[in-house]
Design a protein around this nucleic acid. Structure first.
Lengths: 250, 250
DNA sequence: TCCCTTCAACTGGTCTGACCAGTAGCCTCC
DNA sequence: GGAGGCTACTGGTCAGACCAGTTGAAGGGA
């Protein structure tokens, strides 16, 4: 070979990768939106001109990264869910159970980033954004009458709103993932919590204090309050032996 | 159905998911280390007692999350190439570029969790653990002579060590992922940083102060120092218009 | 007319068995 | 002893089959 002439290594690309790429691009481009349906596996077989196994390998990869979901028997075909949030939740879930992480790690992590999100929001949110938060709080108050389920959902919306006000989407996504993991781990126990009435009232009062601190721009106070409340809410579900992991953040 | 008796929804678990989980667990547990080989697909077929298609779907998912690599004709079988950490990095990367996140979000996130990790470590680390950290710092000092690359690597090891001392593996993994994303995004620019000599000295001095604060148990001071240093190091790479996202944490 | 049952036509999940193109090591043959 | 080919693997892909689940429309009974 003449000197100076060199070639780059070629990477053989597998058939299923081409399919994954095409679907990802369509989703990124907005051609496929959440809720949209892909053709059935057998139909994709003819569209991509490959065998069903190949189509399936591609779908499994897309599914494992949270972009689509398929359900046996669904005549509409695989569904695009495409929410990055669910991809993140999935990732966290995998990490958590492959590393055998427990409530302690998750709660500590949540206390850290949720309080930080609140503190950032306190410093960056405009008055009108705080007014939106005020509405979210009002929504919680209204939800008390509809029972604990509804209240809980409104509570989550409040927390999400605070996270969004931080302006950091990464924070929003991680928070969403870790929050849902915590809830998953303790959901069975949480359902039987006594005295929900008092719990809801206390939560409302706490959120009120947080919002006031945010209006006053007291970021450190928001941090403190957020950690304290999460601790009060969830610390009992952390095994005694690991309790110090979450106590240390108070 | 008698009132009060309720059942939880069952989630049908697909065969390939069980395989993915088992392999992930083995990797997480350290039974399978990078470089190790999995049995061939046909062999896995008998070990898991499923068909080859099912095995392949599992392998494709593992491959897409960066844990293994397979190559046709290789008599040794699929190769384990990475740990959970790299899977986390890969998925963070996917989120970051699908949501078009930039240095601002990443750096803010890193400042938050890295400072929190330091603060937790300050409160929880035993004297002997701090001594290990002392050695990591000594390693950095030694590395100065070997040039910036070596110093940088030793620096990362120091940060990793701090994260591990927090005792929260989730923190360690997220930190690793976000750190490597930040470095990826700015690596081209960072390479041309002038006056590396002074940079290394300043970094050493800072780490010294952090370690002293940890010994003194001054968790808040550790938080402050960590954020300040990260800001000094990286803030210039954040676009002017988003600079407030990271300034706000000082 | 309306509701309930049945059924047919799909779906995805899995299996079997086959063929091809690579790879690596052995084993000839020169 | 080295260069060639042979062989026994590997993963990549395909075709076709069966099952269980879902759905909606057709049909039957009230």
């Amino acid at each position: 070979m003449p000197k100076g002439v060199s070639f780059a290594p070629v990477r053989t690309v597998r058939a299923y990768e081409g399919i994954v790429r095409q679907v990802e691009e369509r989703i990124a481009a907005g051609d496929l939106r959440p809720g949209d349906r892909l053709p059935s596996e057998r139909e994709l077989t003819t569209q991509f001109d490959v065998s069903r196994s190949t189509v399936r390998e591609a779908l499994r990869v897309l599914e494992s990264s949270g972009l689509i979901r398929s359900r046996p028997g669904d005549p509409l075909g695989p569904q695009v869910i495409a929410s990055t949030a669910s991809a993140m939740r999935k990732l966290f879930a995998r990490v958590v159970d492959s590393r055998r992480l427990g409530v302690a790690e998750l709660l500590q992590f949540r206390m850290i980033i949720e309080s930080a999100a609140g503190s950032v929001a306190a410093r960056m949110a405009s008055p009108s954004e705080l007014d939106e938060l005020e509405q979210a709080l009002a929504g919680m108050r209204d939800a008390v009458a509809d029972g604990y389920e509804a209240f809980s959902a409104a509570d989550v919306r409040f927390h999400e709103h605070v996270a969004r006000l931080s302006g950091n989407e990464l924070l929003v996504l991680c928070l969403d993932a870790v929050r849902s993991m915590v809830l998953d781990l303790i959901s069975t126990k949480l359902a039987e919590a006594p005295d929900r009435e008092a719990l809801m009232e206390r939560t409302l009062a706490h959120h009120r204090r947080v919002l006031d601190a945010m209006r006053a721009g007291e970021a450190d106070e928001v941090t403190r309050l957020t950690r304290e409340e999460l601790h009060r809410y969830y610390a009992e579900y952390v095994p005694e032996s690991r309790r110090s992991m979450v106590d240390v953040l108070l």
